[in-house]
């Protein structure tokens, strides 16, 4: 018997077939993004020249013939994307601080402390992850409105400080892998749980906390529903909400819209190339088992 499985190392003609399939399938995966960038750099006359109405697109029309960088400047002049970016980054930073600090505290409680009703509460917490947001949406909206928070960022950031079940789950999984003897040693030395948490557990959990930070960042960057519900002042728009507003106000300005979409998507792609492992690990730990 070969140690290397033949099933996973196929024959040559078989390999060519697989390459052929994969290349054919990756075209629809890649083309939309290429088309986005290419449109963002095209002058209007090129945009209107191809497509179902004009002449059919050729390989050449995939790339802009005359690169028009000024589309980006013009898009920024049409819609204050810079302000939206600042707002989005602000929300990301505050949400990260709130969600990570609160979720790690809660995760430590659930994974390393014993107290009455712990396991039941943990199951309740997991259960809330499956609860559709629509069920609580209206009373929560009313609550924030009655507090006078409508039109401010408070409804978007305050909930972050009360722990996210998803992050708590991720972190408990990680904290459970930390050896209990180490914590016991700290306890015998008379350290308080707070000190053990801050000085032992947190420094050891940097990879898990990095994953959580990435998730909160992505969630906040992409968040559309919250701003849609609570933000009415255009100076407070986030990138996600601003881009949707851009589309509904300037529907035909494709080069500007694609420039804005590129600016909105690019940071995520760059982040992905720097933190590829974290992305994939995060997804497979949450999705797997």
């Amino acid at each position: 018997m070969q140690s290397d499985s033949r099933w996973l190392a196929p024959q040559k003609w078989h390999k060519i077939l697989v390459h052929f399939c994969l290349i054919a399938l990756s075209l629809p995966a890649v083309l939309p993004l290429l088309w986005m960038v290419s449109t963002s750099l095209k002058p209007d006359r090129e945009i209107y020249a191809t497509g179902g109405g004009g002449s059919a697109p050729t390989l050449a029309s995939l790339l802009p013939q005359a690169i028009k960088w000024s589309n980006y400047a013009e898009a920024l002049a049409t819609v204050p994307l810079g302000d939206y970016l600042r707002n989005t980054i602000f929300l990301c930073i505050v949400s990260i601080i709130g969600a990570i600090s609160s979720s790690s505290l809660v995760a430590y409680g659930f994974s390393k402390l014993t107290f009455w009703g712990r396991d039941v509460l943990f199951v309740v917490m997991l259960g809330t992850m499956a609860l559709p947001g629509q069920v609580t949406m209206i009373p929560v909206f009313t609550l924030f409105k009655n507090l006078g928070w409508y039109g401010t960022y408070l409804p978007l950031i305050v909930p972050a400080f009360f722990a996210s079940p998803f992050l708590v789950f991720l972190l408990t999984q990680f904290f459970r892998t930390l050896p209990t003897e180490m914590l016991e040693a700290g306890r015998v030395d008379g350290a308080t749980e707070w000190r053990i948490f801050i000085q032992l557990v947190i420094p050891l959990s940097k990879p898990a906390l990095a994953t959580c930070t990435l998730f909160v960042f992505l969630g906040t960057w992409n968040e559309f529903f919250g701003p849609l519900l609570y933000i009415n002042d255009p100076t407070k728009y986030t990138l996600a909400y601003g881009l949707q507003q851009f589309l509904s106000n300037y529907g035909g300005a494709w080069s500007y819209l694609m420039a804005a979409a590129t600016l909105f998507t690019l940071p995520i792609l760059v982040l992905f190339f720097f933190a590829q492992k974290t992305f994939i690990q995060g997804i497979s730990t949450t999705g797997g088992k």
């Binding site: 939309p32 497509g51 960057w221 995520i268 992905f272």
Partner: peptide, 23 residues
């Protein structure tokens, strides 16, 4: 494609599926 924000995906596909001049 799965990490492209939903709003960006939507805007991109409104353009790509434009009946007259979409890709």
């Amino acid at each position: 494609p799965s990490i492209v924000p939903a709003v960006a995906t939507s805007v991109i596909f409104v353009w790509i599926m434009n009946p007259q001049i979409g890709l």
